[in-house]
Design a protein around this nucleic acid. Structure first.
Lengths: 153, 153
DNA sequence: CTGAATCCGAAAGGATACTG
DNA sequence: CAGTATCCTTTCGGATTCAG
């Protein structure tokens, strides 16, 4: 990155900057669990739900990346979904997008503080997935074998 | 669930029972990150991605639940999605389904060991979501306000 | 009570072609 | 290189209805 001079970061302002204390459990006043429909937990979880968000955060957790680098790291991602995913992460204040006014456009992405606060969780998810993916695949085969042939029990 | 005598659990067999060591980081040999397409991480993450799986796991983390109880706990869920969600979790070996041969059918769901190993992660996700949802909502408003009016910088 | 089946609208997401 | 727009297919997921 060095030579960037007039890079344009998509800093709209500084929303939610006062969230500061990242390591203090919230009170859960309105609703503590899924009992409530409009609780808003799903709004956030849905972001982790789409196909590429988690992988993008994992990749960005090791440092700033260019768009093309992310494209390669996320492998099967289409240009469209890459952009959409990063836009949503940026919109949520998890990722900072910086545009360098170079000849062939240069754009970098990096995690914000909020995004970094999510890193350990996302890393654990990736670890868990890797640790269990074989057993899960086996469970699925078993399940399918037991259900397709005859019906269950 | 006291009186159950001949309850039928959907035990197909015991696939992946030898995964045992739940607290040892995996080696990540084949591929450590999203670099690889057929790595299989997404197969697992996708399960966390759908709308109700995480919420179901959270609810089941506090104990065995009947179908109707889950239906109420997950609030807006439709009968169809409740069944689908639980079936997928069962297929992945995260949830155990038990049918009691009572007059009006009785079915309970509970986490398996594998499902329980996921509980802390899911709980952290829920916590994180609650802790940040306000700030994220604010970021979204800011972002939308800055982009709908004029185009970005 | 629990769940399977059908119908159908709404998204997610890939492929491609086109701009700066 | 980075991103937008369009098209098109697949899946998600709700509503309803029927069955054990």
């Amino acid at each position: 990155m060095s030579a960037g001079h007039t890079a344009v970061t998509d800093q709209v302002s500084d929303p939610g900057a006062t969230e500061a204390v990242e390591d203090e459990l919230v009170a859960l006043e309105p609703c503590g669990l899924p009992e409530h429909p409009d609780c808003g937990i799903r709004d956030v979880l849905d972001r982790l739900g789409d196909t590429w968000s988690v992988l993008a955060v994992v990749e960005l957790s090791s440092g700033t990346r260019r768009s093309s680098e992310l494209k390669r790291a996320l492998h099967g991602v289409s240009q469209r979904m890459l952009t959409l995913t990063l836009r949503r992460l940026e919109r949520d204040g998890l990722v900072l997008r910086t545009v360098y006014p170079t000849v062939p456009a240069t754009v970098t992405y990096e995690l914000t503080d909020r995004g970094r606060s999510l890193t350990p969780l996302v890393q654990q998810l990736a670890d868990w997935s890797l640790r269990h993916r074989a057993a899960i695949a086996e469970s699925r085969r078993e399940y399918d074998r037991a259900t397709t042939a005859s019906d269950r029990a």
